[in-house]
Design a protein around this nucleic acid. Structure first.
Length: 313
DNA sequence: AAGAAGTCCTGGGCGC
DNA sequence: TGCGCCCAGGACTTCT
């Protein structure tokens, strides 16, 4: 399940192969993975566009696209942004045309440098979106690091009152590795929430990019039981939780993410962080700190792993 | 308004 | 061996 560290690793591994490549052809085999616009428009708009920067916001990947003829670099109001969300089993890989395809390959983007960008997804939960750049808020583009400075021209999004195809993209909380994500911020967010702290941390509006694996790992590092009502956390626990989240994500990015079965980076390589997991997927095995068997329970509809000794209720 | 529950989707693991 | 059941979960919608 690609969470922030996995998506960041995909971003890094795709960036060099996509840089300045022009799209020469697009094949969509499963219409339902194209969330926006319709599949024909999606293909037509992409052809002859050139890849610029590849950014990330939470678990979303944002790819800047310019007209093939225009100068690269600055994001212009006429540009487009290809957005992807891999959800559970989605994969984006660069491949040679003669390389065999993964099963469940739904989209193939042919590039002027001879490579292909391929999207595959066993469960077809993942989605691709193509937005006119002006329909994305400046703040989002900056957080995804597609924009260096405030654009001079007027910028959208044009609020036409229509529901967006990707409502979550516009409601994301802060990047957990940014300076915005502080103890004060998290304290404010958790203050009125009576739900289990794990459920609140999975809410992308609170903080962007955490999923089941890294929430369990961060809570272990903070010695916080996942079932504690969010509002009951002490100041000390909040400090340890913010530090734990930043620490586990930083280490996981350094290890190129966690691979159980499906996840691979943009060049097809698995991650290495699974070797360093403390509790996730380790139920019944001894806690690496105290030796107590790691327990698994169900919380917020998710398999939840914790050490009953290190993370007391 | 917050939270719980249902929905999507398919490979793999399990019981019989 | 093979069939059928159920589980895994991110984000979204619907219900309470």
């Amino acid at each position: 399940m690609p969470e922030l560290p996995e998506v960041e690793t995909v971003r890094r591994t795709l960036a060099s192969g996509l840089q300045a490549a022009v799209i020469t052809d697009v094949e969509v085999r499963s219409d339902d993975v194209i969330a926006l616009p319709g599949p024909e428009d999606f293909c037509r708009r992409l052809i002859d566009k050139r890849f610029g920067k590849i950014g990330r916001r939470g678990k979303y990947l944002l790819m800047h696209l310019t007209e093939a003829g225009s100068t690269a670099g600055v994001l212009r109001p006429t540009d487009w942004v290809l957005v992807t969300h891999l959800r559970m089993t989605g994969r984006l890989v660069l491949a040679e045309p003669e390389q065999s395809e993964l099963p469940h390959t739904h989209v193939i983007v042919a590039l002027s440098n001879g490579h292909q960008l391929r999207f595959s997804d066993v469960r077809r939960f993942g989605r691709l979106y193509l937005f006119p750049a002006t329909q994305l808020p400046v703040a989002l583009l900056r957080q995804a690091q597609l924009l260096d400075q405030q654009p001079r021209a007027p910028w959208g999004p044009v609020d036409n009152g229509q529901p967006s195809a990707a409502p979550g993209l516009f409601k994301l909380g802060p990047e957990p590795l940014s300076e915005e994500f502080t103890v004060d911020y998290l304290a404010h967010q958790l203050r009125r929430r009576g739900a289990p702290v794990k459920a609140v941390l999975l809410d992308q509006r609170v903080v962007a990019g955490l999923g089941n694996i890294y929430v369990d790992e961060a809570l272990f590092r903070a010695s916080v039981h996942p079932g504690i009502p969010a509002r009951n956390l002490t100041g000390r626990q909040l400090e340890k939780l913010v530090a734990g989240i930043k620490q586990v994500l930083t280490e996981a990015i350094a290890d190129r993410g966690t691979t159980f079965s499906d996840y691979r980076d943009g060049s097809g390589q698995p991650g290495q962080f699974q070797r360093r997991l403390q509790v996730f997927s380790r139920s019944g095995q001894p806690c690496r700190k105290c030796g107590t068997p790691v327990q698994k329970t169900r919380l917020a509809g998710r398999g939840t792993h914790f050490c009953p000794t290190c993370q007391p209720t």
